Simulated scan of single mutants.
Amino acid sequence: METWFITGTSTGFGRILTEKLLQRGDRVAATVRQPSALAELKAQYGDHLWVATLDVTDTAAVRRVVDAAFADLGRIDVVVSNAAYGLFGAAEEVTDKQVRHQIDTNLVGSIQLIRAALPHLRAQGGGRLMQVSSAGGQTTYPNFSLYHATKWGIEGFVETVAKEVAPFNIGVTIVEPGATPTNFGGGLVSAPILPAYDQTPAGHVRRGVFNGDFPIPNDADKIAQAILESARQHPAPLRLALGSDTYADVRAALVARLAALDAQQAVALSVKADA
């Protein structure tokens, strides 16, 4: 039996992972903003489900809840940083308040969760950290600039942490799901619309999202199962690309960046200091 700690478990991947783990007999420390969201699962699984209310933008609460989970449950094998949402709007459209909340939730909240978990994972001799990112952690789409800022940021942080904690037997994986029917689109927070962007790529993407024109090719249950299976891979994969769209989009982005870098080789080498 394993014990997992997962944030953002009321809906989406967090909820599906929680259900799958409980069904196979594992224990889950689940955090939600509204405890009633897991009342049915708590009634069904009892002590196998540990529930705490948590807003990941509250750093003191993050530390308090993580400490309590390890104190109550003992060893926690896998910590999943999943709580996040998407802010939808061109960079000029989003409000200052929206910018701050997006960063505090997706980036700072994830950073502080990982920082809170690390001392416990070291003390118990190892474990696994999983950060749920997205294809948008390596690619970009108009109207998602702030969302991308947080996902690119957390990927840089987590990739660095992986190098720091490898000597402590802590495996680290960045999970990158593609478009999946988990109500992500319905949960988007939208910015005030500026007419100037109507006939721009931002406007085209806005209409496509609102009209449901973009394909959603992935199966949420299969993605959750792949995440569970990856937790037993050793060594831990640093990145887990999940979805045909993720593979295609991330590969295209990486190939384009490599081509752009190679095209600048001469100028890159030209600034070397003289001997």
Rank of each mutant, 00 (worst) to 15 (best):
K163E: 11
W50G: 03
A268P: 02
A166R: 13
V65D: 03
L194K: 15
L49W: 01
Y197M: 11
I103A: 03
F168C: 04
S190K: 14
V189G: 08
D249W: 04
A37T: 00
D262K: 13
G137P: 03
F70A: 13
L254H: 04
T53R: 05
D213S: 14
G89L: 09
Q233S: 10
A224G: 07
T246V: 10
A236D: 07
D55A: 03
D198M: 06
N82P: 04
M1N: 07
V94F: 05
P177L: 02
P181K: 10
V99S: 11
Q112D: 09
L261K: 10
K151F: 04
S36K: 00
V62G: 11
A116S: 12
D249E: 14
R251I: 07
L240S: 04
L73T: 08
G89K: 05
T105Q: 05
W152Y: 11
Y85A: 01
G185I: 15
G243L: 13
T173E: 07
Q112H: 10
V189H: 09
Q124H: 07
T57L: 08
Y147W: 05
R128L: 12
M130S: 07
V62F: 11
T200H: 05
N183R: 05
S110Q: 02
I16P: 03
L242E: 12
R64P: 01
Q98D: 13
T18K: 01
V66E: 09
S244C: 07
A166E: 14
P142F: 02
Q102P: 06
T57M: 11
F157Y: 14
F13A: 03
T53V: 06
V51K: 01
N169F: 02
D104R: 13
A37L: 00
S145I: 05
G156F: 02
D219H: 08
S10R: 00
A259F: 03
V205D: 08
I216H: 10
G25F: 09
Q44T: 15
T11C: 05
Y197N: 09
Q199P: 04
W152Q: 05
V250Q: 12
S244V: 11
L194G: 08
T95Q: 06
T18E: 02
G127E: 09
E92M: 09
A83V: 00
E92Y: 07
L129K: 03
D262I: 09
A61R: 12
G25W: 09
R100V: 07
A30Y: 00
S81N: 11
I193P: 14
S81Y: 01
H204Y: 12
I216E: 14
L49C: 02
V108H: 07
R207E: 14
V267E: 10
I170D: 10
P217L: 08
T9H: 01
V165I: 04
I6P: 07
D77T: 12
V79T: 09
R24V: 10
G208M: 13
R257Q: 15
V250H: 04
A84H: 06
S81G: 07
E155H: 02
G14F: 00
L188I: 15
D274Y: 11
G186K: 12
P142N: 08
K151N: 01
I154G: 06
R24M: 13
S190Q: 14
N82E: 00
E164I: 02
K97T: 15
L194D: 15
S134V: 02
Q225E: 15
G178R: 08
L22M: 02
A231C: 14
A68R: 15
